[in-house]
């Protein structure tokens, strides 16, 4: 167990590599109860979220969700989160544990016909990820005849599982097919055991924070506090797609990110691949092109799937083309690497 944003989280259960492999080949179950679940309800809920979030919440139909940001005035990322629309005036925000209290304070400044509910520790959450996840979810909801089909990608539905009401969103942080389960806190242990028992014959393993990190990085997903921060904008992080400027809608940080989207950002996030037999890239290692220090690795790991190091790096713009040679510095020594696409496993 290690401390993580005020929580104690398991780094691994049976072993990081076994858990990583299970999620890529069968299925993994992750305890994400530390993540904040904030419910925004009331006739003013949509209007409140429209002035706060970078992706346009008005695009969401009931039962849909998308990835979005809470930005500061400079366009830097306070939090990256998933927003689901449960009904016309009912939204669920799934936020990072480390930003939960800050998010709530910022959201709660909006007082016009909206209430934000969901303090740390009030809910439980789990992520079921991997190619066997749909088969396992099918078994879990077999008894719920009111809602017999699985949620499509980026949709959320409510089911009765083991006697408890559970919201199931079809998304995840591993690059695999999968689902995230949201429920009241006291249902957590029972649902966890029930999913593990149901998925056992499909090869489901409980997975810790270690595999969660190696899986998300292989999929090219950012980690708040490393690849995203109040000093890094979504445009710099290569996530400008999730900032929606279509409507003339004022939202926090809009002016700053709009300028960057039009005229380019000073820095850019690139993928880097290391060489087998060389030390793997890690968070905070400096990156060089020739003699010039051009940036820093924000996340790096020896990829269990690929067998070489992979990393996200934030460097001075413009982005060099894929295949270009770079170096990063490990313990005072330069190590060769190449620029590559940020979806390290390719299109899946």
């Amino acid at each position: 167990m290690i401390p993580f944003a005020g929580w104690n989280l398991p780094v691994e259960y049976s072993g990081l590599l076994a858990e990583h492999k299970a999620t890529r080949q069968a299925a993994g179950l992750f305890d994400i109860s530390h993540m904040g679940q904030i419910r925004a309800t009331g006739p003013g809920a949509l209007a409140a979220l429209e002035v706060l979030l970078a992706n346009d919440p008005a695009k969401l139909k009931d039962g849909e969700g998308h990835y979005t940001f809470l930005l500061n005035d400079q366009g830097g990322v306070i939090d990256d989160l998933f927003l689901y629309r449960l009904g016309p005036s009912d939204f669920l925000l799934v936020v990072n544990a480390s930003r939960h209290v800050e998010d709530l304070a910022l959201l709660s400044k909006q007082k016009s016909n909206v209430s934000f509910v969901g303090s740390p520790g009030s809910t439980a959450g789990m992520a079921l990820q991997g190619p066997r996840a749909p088969a396992i979810l099918s078994k879990l909801i077999q008894g719920d005849l009111s809602n017999p089909s699985l949620p499509p990608r980026n949709h959320i539905r409510q089911y009765t599982i083991a006697g408890h009401l559970v919201l199931v969103g079809a998304t995840g942080y591993t690059g695999e097919e999968g689902y995230e389960f949201f429920m009241e806190r006291k249902a957590g242990p029972k649902i966890w055991d029930h999913i593990l028992a149901t998925g056992k014959s499909e090869g489901l393993l409980p997975c810790g924070l270690g595999a969660r990190d190696s899986l998300r990085l292989e999929a090219g997903f950012p980690l708040n506090g490393q690849d995203l921060s109040p000093e890094i904008t979504p445009v710099e992080a290569g996530l400008g797609f999730f900032v929606d400027l279509t409507r003339p809608r004022p939202f926090l940080g809009r002016t700053a990110v709009e300028t960057q989207k039009k005229s380019g950002a000073p820095r850019v996030c690139i993928g880097i691949k290391g060489v087998t037999g060389q030390p793997p890239p890690r968070h905070d290692y400096p990156v060089f092109r020739g003699d010039q220090r051009i940036g820093v690795i924000t996340s790096g790991v020896p990829s269990p799937t690929l067998g070489h190091g992979i990393a996200l790096a934030l460097i001075t713009a413009p982005a060099p083309p894929c295949g270009q040679d770079l170096e990063f510095e490990v313990r005072g020594r330069r190590v060769p690497a190449k620029v590559c696409h940020r979806k390290f496993l390719g299109k899946r």
Partner: peptide, 9 residues
């Protein structure tokens, strides 16, 4: 020496 796992160096 340095020993590196997936987790850390």
């Amino acid at each position: 020496a340095t020993v590196e796992s997936v987790k850390a160096a």
